[in-house]
Design a protein around this nucleic acid. Structure first.
Length: 491
RNA sequence: CGGGAUGUAGCGUAGCCCGGUUAUCGCGCCUGGUUUGGGACCAGGAGGUCGCAAGUUCGAAUCUUGCCAUCCCGACCA
C-alpha cells in the first residue's frame, strides 16, 4: 500500500469503491443495497468458487440445492437462530399484483395474501434440517456431508459493496454426524480448508480461532473463524465454521438409530464463505494504481500487448504473439491478447493494471529483433526484458513468485501491525494510532467484552487456536487471565 | 432508524449565496485523418425532464415547501 493511502485512512471507503468499480468488478444496482457483479468480477468469483468446490469434494462433500423460500414457521423452531436473524429478513407476504383501481400503476393484490408468509433465506439451516429429518434414519445414513452454492438475503441496516450487500452469493455446508467428536472434527477440517484456500490461493494470511460466546453464530455451540487484516488496519472475518451441537437436530427432530438400536439426535456443523472474500482480496492487496490479483485466481494471469508500427509489423507481431499464447495456454496459463486498434498501448497498460492482471507482456518490433519481450509484474511494478527462449517456463516461475511475494508482503504487513498491549492506555493508543491486531489479556466475561466494545469499538476477533497459555491481567478489569486474545476494529 | 452531505449529459463538475440571452468545463462517445514502447493529436459532431412535485415571480438550475434517491458516520452485520 502506498504511503498516500495510509495517510488518508478516512478515505479508504472511497478508495475501495473506486477500485471495485473502475477495476470492473461490480456496481451497486438499482435494488436497495444489492450489487451487480460484472463479468470480470464474476470470473474472479468463479475461479475462487471452483477451487473451493474442488477442495470440498476432496474432503468428501457433495453439492445439493435447497429452496430460496422458507416458511416463516421453520425459522422459529430454533430459538437462538430466530433471535439472530429475525431482524434482517425479507418476507414474502403476497403472490400477485393487480392494476391499481385508481389508475396509478400496479399494486399488490390484497386478496393474494399468503396464508403463511415466506422468508427469503438469510441462511438455510432451517429448510435443510427440515429436509434432513426425512433423509436420516440410521447410522448408515451418516455422515451426511452436503454443500450448497446459493444466494441469500439479509436486510441489513447498512450495506457496503462486496462486504455487506443485501443479497450476496456464498456457499453453505451443512453436515450431520453420529458423534460429537466427528462433528467437531468436521468443523475444524472445514476451517482448515478455508484457511488453506485464503492463504494459498488468495495470498491473504489469516488467523484461525474461535469466537467468544457473544460473537457466536445464532444457534451454534462454537463458532470457528478465520480473521484477516486489511491495509487500513481493520480486521475482516473471512469465513466461519460452526459446531451446532444437537441444537438443530432437536429443533427439527432429526434422530437416527445407532448400531445398538438406540434413538439419538445427530450432531451438526455448518460453514460458509461469501463474495465478501472478494472484498477481502481487494482490501488486502490493491494499491492506488488499481487491483492486484493473485495469479492463482486472477481471471487472466497474463496479458499480451502488441506494439505496432504500421500494418506490416502488425502481422508479424500477431504471429509471434499467437505462438507465445499457444505455448502459455498449453501450460494452463490464462492469457488475454489485446491487439485491438481502439486504444493505444499506454492506455492498455493502465487499464490492465487497474484490473490487476499479474503479468503483462509487451511485444514490439524492437523486441522481435532482439528476441526478447518486455515483462512487467503487477505486484512490484518491475519491468524486465526476458528472452523469448524459455519464456513460458520463466512466466510460470514468475507467476509462482508473484503469488508467494503477495502472501509474504501481506504477512509482513500483518506481523508489523500485530502488537501486544498490557494496559488500557496502550490499548487505546494502539487502536487510534497504529491499528491492526492487538493481543491482550481479557478476563473472559461478556460484560468486559461489551464494555471494551462500547468504549473503543474494538471487538475480540477470536481466541486464536494453538494459543500459548500465559498468565496476565485483563486490560480493562485487571482480573486474572490465562491467555491473550485477538482484538481489532473490524468491518 | 438517528446525525451529516450531495443530486446539473455515460462519468466527473462550474454556475446557486446575490433569479435574467443559446447552462460551464474536462473525460468519454460518433465521423475523418495522422498516430501507436506509459492513459495520443488535429478538425468536425452528437448528447441535458438541471433528482421529482408544487409554490413565489414577467422570468427559476438558482428562492420557498414537500417528497425521492445516493453516499458517509452510527446502531446492525458474512
Amino acid at each position: 500500500m502506498s504511503k498516500e493511502l495510509t495517510s488518508r485512512a478516512e478515505d479508504y471507503s472511497q478508495w475501495y469503491n473506486d477500485l471495485v468499480i473502475k477495476g470492473g468488478l461490480a456496481d451497486y444496482s438499482a435494488v436497495r443495497g444489492c450489487m451487480v457483479i460484472k463479468p470480470y468480477g464474476f470470473a474472479l468469483w468463479e475461479n475462487m468458487r471452483d477451487q473451493l468446490d474442488k477442495m470440498f469434494k476432496e474432503t468428501g462433500h457433495l453439492n445439493a440445492y435447497f429452496p430460496l423460500f422458507i416458511p416463516k414457521s421453520f425459522l422459529s423452531k430454533e430459538a437462538a437462530h430466530v433471535e439472530g436473524f429475525a431482524k434482517e429478513c425479507a418476507v414474502v407476504t403476497h403472490y400477485r399484483l393487480m392494476n391499481d383501481p385508481n389508475g396509478k400503476g400496479i399494486v399488490v393484490d390484497p386478496d393474494a395474501k399468503l396464508e403463511e408468509e415466506l422468508i427469503i433465506r438469510p441462511t438455510s439451516e432451517t429448510i435443510i434440517w427440515n429436509t434432513y429429518k426425512d433423509w436420516i434414519q440410521s447410522y448408515r445414513d451418516l455422515p451426511l456431508l452436503i454443500n450448497q452454492w446459493a444466494n441469500v438475503v439479509r436486510w441489513e441496516m447498512r450495506t457496503r459493496l462486496f462486504l455487506r450487500t443485501t443479497e450476496f452469493l456464498w456457499q453453505e455446508g451443512h453436515t450431520a454426524h453420529a458423534t460429537k467428536q466427528e462433528a467437531v472434527e468436521e468443523t475444524e477440517r472445514m476451517l482448515n480448508v478455508y484457511a488453506e484456500f485464503v492463504e494459498t490461493y488468495m495470498a491473504v494470511p489469516v488467523i484461525k480461532g474461535v469466537k467468544t460466546a457473544s460473537e457466536r453464530f445464532a444457534g451454534a455451540e462454537e463458532t470457528y473463524c478465520i480473521e484477516a487484516l486489511m491495509q487500513d488496519g481493520k480486521a475482516l472475518q473471512a469465513g466461519t465454521s460452526h459446531f451446532l451441537g444437537q441444537n438443530f437436530a432437536k429443533a427439527f427432530d432429526v434422530q437416527f438409530l445407532t448400531k445398538d438400536n438406540k434413538q439419538e439426535y445427530v450432531w451438526a456443523t455448518s460453514w460458509g464463505v461469501s463474495t465478501r472474500l472478494i472484498g477481502a482480496l481487494i482490501m488486502a492487496h490493491s494499491d492506488d494504481q488499481g487491483l492486484i490479483l493473485p495469479p492463482k485466481i486472477a481471471p487472466f494471469q497474463v496479458v499480451i500487448i502488441p506494439i505496432y508500427k504500421g500494418e506490416e509489423s502488425k502481422a508479424a507481431i500477431d504471429a509471434k504473439s499467437n505462438e507465445i499464447i499457444t505455448s502459455l495456454k498449453t501450460l494452463g496459463i490464462r492469457v488475454k491478447y489485446d491487439n485491438s486498434d481502439n486504444s493505444r498501448p499506454g492506455w492498455k497498460f493502465a487499464q490492465y493494471e487497474l484490473q490487476g492482471i499479474p503479468v503483462r507482456i509487451a511485444l514490439g518490433l524492437r523486441d522481435m529483433e532482439n528476441k526478447v519481450v518486455e515483462v512487467a509484474r503487477r505486484d512490484t511494478k518491475e519491468k524486465n526484458s526476458m528472452p523469448m527462449d524459455g519464456l513460458e517456463e520463466n512466466i510460470v516461475k514468475l507467476l509462482d513468485e508473484i503469488q508467494q511475494n503477495m502472501y509474504n508482503k501481506a504477512l509482513d504487513f500483518r506481523n508489523e501491525k500485530t502488537t501486544n498491549a498490557d494496559n488500557w492506555d496502550d490499548f487505546v493508543k494502539l487502536l487510534d494510532g497504529k491499528g491492526g491486531f492487538i493481543e491482550a489479556h481479557w478476563d473472559g466475561t461478556a460484560e468486559t467484552e461489551e464494555k471494551i466494545k462500547d468504549q473503543t469499538k474494538a471487538t475480540i476477533r477470536c481466541i486464536p487456536m494453538n494459543n500459548k497459555p500465559e498468565a496476565g491481567a485483563c486490560i480493562l478489569s485487571g482480573k486474572p487471565s490465562t491467555q491473550r486474545v485477538l482484538f481489532a476494529r473490524a468491518y
